[in-house]
Each structure stands twice: as C-alpha cells, then as structure tokens.
Simulated assay, not measured.
Amino acid sequence: MFDWNDLRYFLELQRSGRLLTAARRLNTTHATVARHIEAIEKSLGTALFVQHAQGYELTPAGETLLKHAEAMENVALLAQEDITQSSAPLGKIRLGVTEGLGIMFLASRMDGLFQRYPGLEVELVAVPRFVSILNREAEISIHLERPAADLLVTRKLTDYSLALYASQAYLDRSPALRSREDLARHAWIGYVDDLLFSQELMFLNSFCRNPRVVFHSTSVIAQQQAARSGLGIAVLPCYMASGDPTLVPLLPDETIRRSYWISTRRELHKSVRLRVLWDYVVQLCEREQGLLLP
C-alpha cells in the first residue's frame, strides 16, 4: 500500500499542473514533490501523470485515483472541522471574489461579521479572474457566471446594475452628450478583450456599436481611476461609482444588469464557519439592494 501522505503531493500537482508551483504551495522543493509522485506510482505500478509543455496532466489511472484522493481529503477536512469546532469555534475561511465586489463592496462591510463571530478569520482573495473552488483556491467563490460543476452548491447572490460614468473635466472638453447616439463621438475606457475571464464583461457594445476605446485594463478599479482622471467614459458597477463625487452619471436610462453567483463544494456546505460567512454575504447583499440595484 502506498503512503497516504503521498496523496497531498498528488493532489497539489494535479491542481497546479507544475512541479514548481506545487512545491511552492506545499512549502517544499520540486524534487520532493517529484519523489513523492514517483513513490506512489511505483507502489501502484502505473503512471499517474503525463508531462506536456503546458504542464502535468493525469493519465486514466490518475483520473481514477483522483476521485478517491479527493474523497479521502474531504473526509479529513470534515473530521478536522468537527474537532476544531468543538475545541476552538470557527477559524480561517477563504473567500474568492471578483475584485470590484471584493474590494469596493465587501471589504468595507465585514465589521458586523467579526463583531458577531470574533473567532472567525477571513481571507479575501479579490482578483480580476475566476477563483477556483475545485482547485482549492478558496472555500467559497463568487462568480459572474453560474458554475456548471455538479460538485458545487450554487445560488444566485444578487443582481447588480452598471451605468455610464465620466469626470466633469472630461465632459467639459468633450462633445455634448444628450442621447445614446452621441456616445460614438466619445472616448471610452474598457477591458483588455483577449484577457477577459468572463463573457459577462463584454458590454461596451451594448451602449455603442463601435466604441473608440483609448484605455484598456483588466482591472475595473483601474478603469474607475482612469475615468476619474478624465480619460473617457467607463461602464462601472453602480455600487462602485454612484457614491464617487469625482464621477458624473451619464444618460440615466442607459444601464445594464448582471448577476453574481456564490458557490462552494457540496461536501463543505455544512461547515459551520463556511455557513457563517455564506449567510452573512447573502444577507448583506439582500440589505444593500438599493446600492446594488439603484
């Protein structure tokens, strides 16, 4: 029988796809990771990975082992949960979220959670990309699109509105903007198209057929800053921009609506600390509908 400890290295290499990345996440060397993989392959008498230019991919035998390894990991996590909650309630939990919602909405509204649960520790991973629950990057993740994985528990978190904003300085030096037809005469701020992590972010053409984009960024916060500095018109979530005194809302009837979805792994949904954070975020969004959907 193989050493169960080898499964940690197997799972991390499968999730990261590269020896160096797996080693960094496990706080060890790539040689150590390789040694554990070799040991488990020797014990099972079959190769578990095939190495390609893009990284390591599972063989059919590796796919079979993955199901059992994840099941064993889940049992260990739930056992740890049961024990730690009886001796030291709550603990650490990681929430992955798009940067706009994470930085400009959630981060400033978490005080009530910690007042209620002082034993809780939250890691907020707020980045302009998809944060994977299945790869253990987070225990709860908030997405722009509904995940399709069967292993996840998912619900709609909230709808939210986006509108057009620009600085007064930009408007003062630009052509008059009285209707949708005038938008084609203006400079725009938008995303880097080939680096979009969600099709839900392709919305400039909803306002203007051929927008003249002068500034691109993968970050919605950078786009807001560019609009504040007078570079052009930006499409921004109302919860970010409506309270910004340096931005002027444009064409109030020209808005679009998008949704956020919240997910976690099915087997973790009964975790106490997970449910505490999950319920708080859901209730927070319910209370703030006036800001999210003005």
Rank of each mutant, 00 (worst) to 15 (best):
I40E: 11
A148S: 10
G119I: 01
R180F: 03
A227C: 02
M240H: 06
T46M: 14
K67W: 06
A187N: 14
S198F: 13
L11R: 06
G119F: 05
T246V: 06
A22L: 06
Y239G: 02
K270I: 00
R258V: 00
H52R: 13
A23L: 11
R265V: 03
L144C: 04
R209E: 09
L171A: 10
S167N: 07
P249S: 03
L250V: 05
L58Y: 14
R209G: 00
T98D: 11
A148C: 00
E267A: 13
A76T: 08
A69P: 01
W278P: 03
L26S: 02
H186P: 00
E121G: 06
S141V: 06
A69I: 01
F130Q: 14
A69F: 04
Q54S: 10
V220Q: 15
V131L: 04
A31F: 14
S263Q: 08
V281H: 09
E200A: 15
T98L: 03
M110C: 10
T255V: 00
L13D: 01
R155C: 03
W4M: 13
P245K: 09
E139R: 09
Y170S: 03
R265S: 08
E81A: 06
T246S: 15
G96S: 12
W4C: 08
P89E: 05
I189V: 10
D172P: 01
M104F: 04
L48S: 11
A227R: 05
G55V: 11
R116V: 02
A187H: 13
D182E: 00
V50H: 15
P128I: 13
S174F: 05
G232E: 05
I83L: 12
T21R: 15
S219E: 08
L162K: 12
A241R: 07
G100V: 13
P237K: 08
L20W: 02
G190F: 00
G45V: 01
V213P: 06
V75F: 14
I133Q: 06
L65E: 12
S141P: 04
E41I: 01
N205F: 05
F207L: 02
V131W: 00
E137Q: 15
I140T: 06
V33T: 10
A88D: 08
L231T: 01
L247W: 02
L171K: 09
F114I: 07
S43G: 06
L177M: 07
I37D: 06
V50E: 15
G100T: 15
S219K: 14
T158N: 02
G62W: 14
D244F: 03
A166M: 00
F215Y: 15
K67S: 05
S16L: 02
L291F: 03
L101Y: 11
D82Y: 12
A107Y: 04
S263M: 10
F114S: 08
L177S: 04
M72W: 15
L77A: 08
S259T: 04
T98P: 01
V272S: 03
S242K: 09
V220E: 15
I93C: 03
L66G: 09
R35W: 00
R8P: 00
K270R: 10
V272M: 02
D6Q: 11
A138T: 05
D279R: 12
N210A: 07
H36W: 06
S16W: 02
E267H: 12
P147D: 04
F114L: 10
Q54P: 00
Y117Q: 09
R228I: 11
L171M: 10
P147T: 02
L44R: 12
Q51F: 07
H186Q: 12
H269Y: 12
S263V: 09
